[in-house]
Simulated scan of single mutants.
Amino acid sequence: MVGTLSGALEARKIPASPNKVKAQVQGTIEAPEGVLKITKISCHFELKIPQGKREAAERALSVFERGCPVVQTLQGCIAFHHTWVITED
């Protein structure tokens, strides 16, 4: 997910490295029907972007899942939830 988001940012001329994108990811494990499985993945992104690039960064955050192989593979099986904080340099 971070790689795909970084690519979406770079395509919008927003540097993704070094240390410009951080993610905290948490999986929720439940036992519906008595079998443990991951039911939700929550990801909180922290972005450091140049001044004036907030709109482009928010657009990248809103669409990157379409090109993310992890999300596209697990979509329908696991719920994804994303939050973010954007800091402008």
Results as ranks from 00 to 15, higher is better:
Gly34Met: 03
Val63Glu: 15
Glu65Trp: 13
Lys13Arg: 10
Ala56Ile: 11
Trp84Val: 06
Leu9Trp: 00
Ala8Lys: 08
Cys68Phe: 03
Ser6Lys: 14
Leu47Trp: 10
Ser17Lys: 11
Val70Gln: 02
Pro50Trp: 05
Ser17Gly: 11
Lys22Tyr: 00
Gln24Asn: 03
Leu5Trp: 10
Cys77Asn: 14
Ser6Met: 15
Met1Glu: 03
Thr83His: 02
Arg12Asn: 07
Ile86Gln: 04
Thr87Lys: 03
Trp84Phe: 12
Cys43Asn: 14
Val70Ile: 15
Ile78Asp: 01
Asp89Cys: 07
Glu58Gly: 13
Gly52Gln: 09
Thr83Trp: 00
Arg66His: 12
Thr39Met: 06
Ala79Ile: 01
Lys22Thr: 02
Leu61Asp: 11
Thr87His: 01
Glu55Trp: 08
Glu10Gly: 05
Leu5Pro: 13
Val25His: 03
Glu30Trp: 00
Val25Ile: 10
Leu36Asn: 15
Asn19Pro: 01
Lys40Tyr: 01
Arg59Thr: 08
Val63Gln: 07
Ala16Trp: 05
Glu88Ser: 08
Lys40Thr: 15
Ala31Lys: 05
Leu74Val: 08
Ala23Met: 01
Lys13Ser: 07
Lys53Thr: 13
Ala31Gln: 14
Glu55Pro: 12
Ala11Ile: 02
Gly3Met: 10
Ile29Ser: 05
Ala56Ser: 13
Thr28Pro: 07
Pro69Tyr: 01
Gln51Gly: 04
Thr87Ser: 00
Thr87Ile: 04
Leu61Cys: 11
Gly67Val: 09
